[in-house]
């Protein structure tokens, strides 16, 4: 029966045009309406508004580590001892799997100076995302991921094991000497 339509005498090309235009309008409308259905799963406005976290570093005593939460993810904030800093700086970075100096692992404060005491990193192993053990764990007395045996040193650099990268640094900035804003 569909043939009756296209084989009819009355100007078939104009008819085809209206069918195509109708179909195109429907397809375009469906595509546009699909966007809200997809976008609703993206982070909502209240979630996005909470994308930064402020942490007061003065509460952390030397040799202590806290886990702050930023965007729902754990963040290591460690007040390193002088021994840890020296250990991290005594390594030739060029020989490492992911070569980074200790200063590459820090962010300058509002005066442009580095504060090596405070090491701030995402608490997520770069291998498959487990939370590593801290407080001097592992062969290099930094962090150790128990999932698949990745060893990180006192600057959070990968030294041994399957992880490909050093522990990632979250974006953060110093608001004062002891107050940082993550995110």
């Amino acid at each position: 029966m569909a043939e009756t339509v296209s084989t009819s005498a009355q100007d078939p090309s104009r008819r085809d045009f209206i069918y195509i235009a109708t179909g195109a309008a429907g397809a375009a409308g469906a595509a546009l309406f699909a966007w809200p259905l997809v976008d609703q799963m993206n982070p909502a406005a209240d979630t996005k508004a909470l994308s930064t976290t402020e942490v007061d570093l003065s509460d952390i005593s030397e040799g202590q580590q806290i886990i702050a939460k930023w965007q729902g993810k754990p963040v290591f904030i460690r007040h390193r001892t002088q021994g840890e800093i020296d250990a991290a700086r005594g390594v030739d970075a060029s020989g490492l799997k992911d070569p980074q100096s200790d200063e590459d692992r820090l962010v300058p404060n509002q005066d442009g100076k580095y504060e090596p005491k405070y090491l701030i990193m995402l608490a997520s192993c770069t291998h498959l995302g487990c939370v590593p053990l801290g407080d001097g764990a592992g062969d290099y007395e930094g962090w150790f991921c128990p999932c698949h045996g990745s060893h990180y040193d006192t600057a959070g650099r990968i030294r041994k094991g399957p992880a490909p990268k050093n522990l990632f640094l979250p974006p953060y900035q110093y608001l004062s000497d002891t107050l940082i804003k993550i995110g």
């Binding site: 009819s8 009355q10 209206i18 069918y19 235009a21 109708t22 309008a25 429907g26 409308g29």
Partner: peptide
């Protein structure tokens, strides 16, 4: 506005299909 245009096109298709 979109629905109005779509409705007019669909009405055109309807008339064309039912013409004979």
């Amino acid at each position: 506005i979109y629905l109005l245009i779509f409705a007019l096109l669909m009405y055109g298709s309807y008339k064309a299909v039912w013409r004979d």
